[in-house]
Design a protein around this nucleic acid. Structure first.
Length: 563
RNA sequence: CGGGGCGUAGCGCAGCCUGGUUAGCGCGCCUGCCUUGGGAGCAGGAGGUCGGUGGUUCAAAUCCACUCGCCCCGACCA
């Protein structure tokens, strides 16, 4: 492709709304264009990347026996009502009505549709197993789209579904997907870690996520050097053990701001000898949740234990305890107390005295607080202890690229998708569901591979393999040499920058869009009979005679592919 | 949904507080000249319902009210 004829609208400055590295570079490089919040157009360059990603996905899905099909995105409400997800999905589901006022959903996922297909078509155990997949736009009205393409409201997903006779069969299908996913991310040069995850609205028994560590990620992982890793939403780790020293209950004057920092500094005590007392409202009534001072509460855990819980308002706290938030504790109050496990055995603790500028020291949970229930609501953090090996774990941000679920018979039972087994009995199909975010692979590759000048694509998903710069096309020798090289490299994916632009512009653009191999034809080199070839990720270029360019380029290309 | 911020030309911004003629600047875009190894220079030019609606006023980008959109931080998910 000649750049002079291509539609590659690069930007010198990124739109101010783009904050995430991948979002900025995708916008600046002319890969995507945003249409509305979380909705994007994929421009020619971006679409080339996505097509390559999809090709890799298809090859690996086909390799495990997957068969590609394509389901509608517009789906009748009745199907979703059968499984209860018409209600369960809530506001995240885009809903439309037809002219007869019948309800439809723009599918956020396709379990119901695949199960409908299976129950109509699968009769006998002889029809199983099956792996069916598709790559398609999904629609989810996300609470908050973010990071450009990282969390979008319409996005491409490869979703596959396995249909098996029994749980052993499901285990095999699951394993096959695990392997396919591993290969897909390897081929995209993305270092994915596999973690245990929660199944959420999908349901089912077991699920794993394929994650890539990145500060732009929205998930956080607990990682231990012993090999244990999990999403913090299901991750287990023990609090750092500390010693509690018993003491007498005393009221002390604390004329400072009621924050953990200020109070511990004023009293000269470590944060873990503080009992953080927080008030929430659950089912219309106040409750206390207490946790060790060096920890925070994981609101996700809290909500799963106390559905519908909300933090108490400042006025409510004042009314119930007589003090502002920084000076409260359950001691002496008749309000139910839920204590986090980090406080197990807690004594000699400091917490509010329910009077502004006063705290209590020497609190013993056993003696002074009526704990209604011990709960695990602690936000796991770096330094916590691995439950398997006892070593310190690390908490890191990550991007979720893929998620696999063992659904079991949740959908097949709800929708009566059954088959007749060898023994003549009717049994529900045992199902699995598996997803990959296509644009996320593109964005994550940028998050992982970029420098201050732009993207450095892994060659397997680069929009072009080679970029050829003709530094001064008005010089006949430069132009002719570049044209000749362009023709010679006709069988690789090459972008030929033949524009009438300053050299600087071409260098900057080439770096920005991140093509892995760059060939430069310029006057300066030609005077010495050479052109330059360079990998995007390397600093130094090699000088080669024009006649040898093809050979050198092909070699670099192979190195990059890792053949 | 809670918290924070932003809407002025394709992109980045100034002007608004303290209302007052044709609403500015840089980049980009068009024409010509010139230039050609890391986003050149000169000259000329095109491009705006100042997010929208309503109000205050002789007069609104500027003040007030409502509204829509977008981004960021938190609770959900590929």
């Amino acid at each position: 492709m000649r750049w002079s004829e291509a539609f590659i609208p690069t930007l010198r400055e990124a739109p101010k709304d783009a904050v995430t590295v991948s979002h900025r570079l995708l916008l600046r490089g002319g890969f995507i264009k945003s249409l509305a919040s979380g909705i994007h157009t994929y421009l020619p360059l971006g679409w080339r990347v996505l097509k390559k990603v999809m090709r890799i996905i298809r090859e690996e899905m086909d390799r495990i026996g997957g068969q590609e099909l394509h389901m509608p995105a517009l789906t009748p409400a009745e199907l979703w009502e059968e499984t209860g997800r018409w209600e369960e999905y809530g506001d995240e589901m885009f809903r439309v009505k037809d002219r007869k006022k019948r309800d439809y959903a723009l599918a956020p996922t396709h379990e119901e549709i695949i199960t409908e297909l299976a129950r109509k078509e699968i009769r006998s155990y002889r029809d199983l197993p099956q792996i069916w997949y598709q790559i398609q736009m999904k629609f989810r009205d996300e609470l908050r789209p973010r990071g450009g393409v990282l969390r979008a409201r319409s996005f491409l997903m490869k979703d596959s579904y396995s249909l098996d006779r029994d749980w052993d069969g499901l285990a095999r299908s699951y394993e096959l997907h695990y392997e396919a996913y591993t290969r897909i991310f390897e081929r995209c040069k993305l270092p994915a870690v596999v973690v245990e995850a929660s199944a959420g609205i999908m349901g089912g028994s077991e699920s794993h996520e394929f994650m890539v560590l990145s500060e732009s990620g929205e998930d956080s992982l607990v990682i231990c050097s012993c090999g244990y890793s999990a999403n913090t939403e299901v991750g287990e780790a023990d609090p750092v053990p500390v010693e509690f020293k018993d003491g007498e209950l005393k009221k002390v004057h604390t004329p400072v701001e009621g924050t953990v920092e200020k109070i511990t500094e004023f009293l000269g005590i470590p944060a873990y000898h503080l009992m953080k007392s927080l008030m929430y409202v659950h089912e219309g009534k106040p409750i206390f949740v207490v946790i060790r001072g060096d920890y925070d509460i994981d609101e996700r855990k809290l909500v799963s234990i106390f559905p519908g819980i909300r933090p108490a308002h400042p006025e409510e706290i004042k009314e119930w305890t007589g003090a502002p938030a920084g000076y409260i504790s359950p001691v002496g109050l008749n309000i139910p107390v839920y204590a986090d496990l980090s406080l197990k055995g807690g004594k000699g603790l400091t917490s509010g005295a329910n009077e502004e500028f006063y705290h209590l020291t020497g609190i013993s949970l056993e003696r002074d607080v009526k704990v209604k229930e011990w709960v695990d609501v602690r936000l796991v953090k770096t330094g916590d202890r691995c439950r398997r090996c006892g070593k310190e774990v690390e908490v890191r941000r990550a991007i979720e690229l893929g998620h696999i679920f063992k659904l079991g018979t949740k959908y097949s039972e709800a929708m009566r998708a059954t088959f007749l087994d060898r023994d003549g009995k009717e049994k529900p199909i045992v199902m699995g569901s598996y997803g990959i975010g296509v644009e996320r692979i593109m964005a994550t590759a940028i998050e992982v591979y970029h420098d201050e000048n732009g993207i450095i694509w892994p060659i397997s998903i680069a929009p072009y393999e080679v970029i050829l710069l003709s530094l001064n096309p008005s010089n006949p020798e430069v132009r002719e040499t570049a044209e000749r090289i362009y023709r010679e490299l006709g069988n690789v994916e090459i972008l030929y920058d033949d524009r009438d632009e300053q050299p600087g512009v071409k260098f900057k653009d080439a770096d920005l869009i991140g093509i892995p191999v760059r060939v430069v034809v310029g006057e300066r080199g030609l005077k010495r009979g050479v052109v330059e070839v360079k990998k995007r990720k390397e600093k130094e270029s090699v000088e080669v005679e024009p006649g040898k360019v093809k050979e050198v380029v092909m070699k670099m290309r192979e190195e990059l592919y890792g053949y």
